[in-house]
Amino acid sequence: MNEKGMTVIVKTVTRYISGLIFLFGLYILLFGHLTPGGGFAGGVIMAGCFILITLSFGKEEIEKFLKHKKVTFLESLGALIFLIMSFLPVIFGKDYFLNIIHQKFGSIYFKFLSSGNIIIYNIGIAIKVMAGIFFVFFILSITRVVVFKGDYKIVKRK
């Protein structure tokens, strides 16, 4: 059990720090319309938290709470949120991609809920980017090439 992943120093530091990294990504995501940041940066930072756990603990640890099918579901969910929110004004007879929430409850500035649709777009993009980038890294890390008696053989990583 101890041979999986990296040494005990890396595991201890990861155990304390990974939650803080996830929280920082959430902050960058949710305040993307008032400060620098936004959906892309927040999603990539949250994916980096999961990649850190995968690198230091091995892939069995991450599969306990983030299964293969769940990642695929999250990626589709992000794209679906973005599409539904962009089609919402069409239902009410307005233009595509119109910011209807801000037009209805206007004149709130410099507050958390000040920009209408933009925060929901940000959440959708962040979920999509996080799931996609983590999935690519996961697929890249389970195939490995070893040299076995002079010829090449592909094994699944134990």
Binding site: G38, F40, V136, L140, V145, Y152
Partner: peptide
């Protein structure tokens, strides 16, 4: 540019996947 950077990462990942497949096939 913000859009272009993220697309660059996706393209790099696709390149790496193709390179790994070529390495598996030809060594």
């Amino acid at each position: 540019v913000l859009t272009s950077i993220v697309i660059g990462l996706a393209i790099t990942a696709l390149f790496v996947a193709i390179a790994i497949r070529i390495y598996e096939k030809f060594g």
